[in-house]
């Protein structure tokens, strides 16, 4: 699967959240459904950035307990935790080495570039199973 589908409304919610957390990084989980040819984002859930406050302009982290809670919620709703999204303030929507070192395969990483407090670009990525690099996915906004 190399296509991820997100509605314009959900994309707008991500943009608004990322602009609100600027100049810090923000993020959350992508809940969705996996089908034969594409992944579809059904819902997004904002999760607090718990990285040290003075580092939040270039770092994002969430509590393991948030993963546990949201994975259980997804199971209860018949959905799947398909990925996570975060912002890169005043930088391109390209994954960093830090992103790669902390990434899992089979998971979609949506990065939003926020330039001067305005969401400028959104791209979707997925880690290769050998952890060597991210591949860009086709992001379809419907």
């Amino acid at each position: 699967m190399r296509v991820i589908i997100i509605s314009g409304e959900l994309q707008q919610r991500v943009f608004e959240q990322m602009e609100a957390t600027y100049p810090n990084e923000g993020g959350g989980f992508l809940l969705g459904a996996a089908e034969a040819e594409a992944l579809t984002v059904v819902d997004i859930i904002q999760v607090d950035n718990v990285f040290a406050a003075e580092e939040q302009h270039h770092r994002y982290a969430m509590r393991p307990q948030d993963w546990m809670r949201l994975e259980d919620q997804a199971d209860e709703r018949g959905l799947t935790l398909i990925g996570y999204y975060h912002s890169h303030p005043d930088s391109p929507a390209l994954p960093s080495d830090y992103d790669r070192e902390h990434a899992l395969p089979n998971f979609v990483y949506i990065i939003t570039s926020v330039m001067m407090a305005r969401a400028a670009d959104m791209r979707a990525w997925r880690l290769q199973p050998d952890r060597s690099r991210f591949d860009q996915l086709t992001l379809e906004v419907l």
Partner: peptide, 12 residues
């Protein structure tokens, strides 16, 4: 037991 990733990301 449960394996839980600490999701993290960010610029270099």
């Amino acid at each position: 037991l449960r394996i839980i990733p600490s999701i993290a990301g960010g610029l270099k």
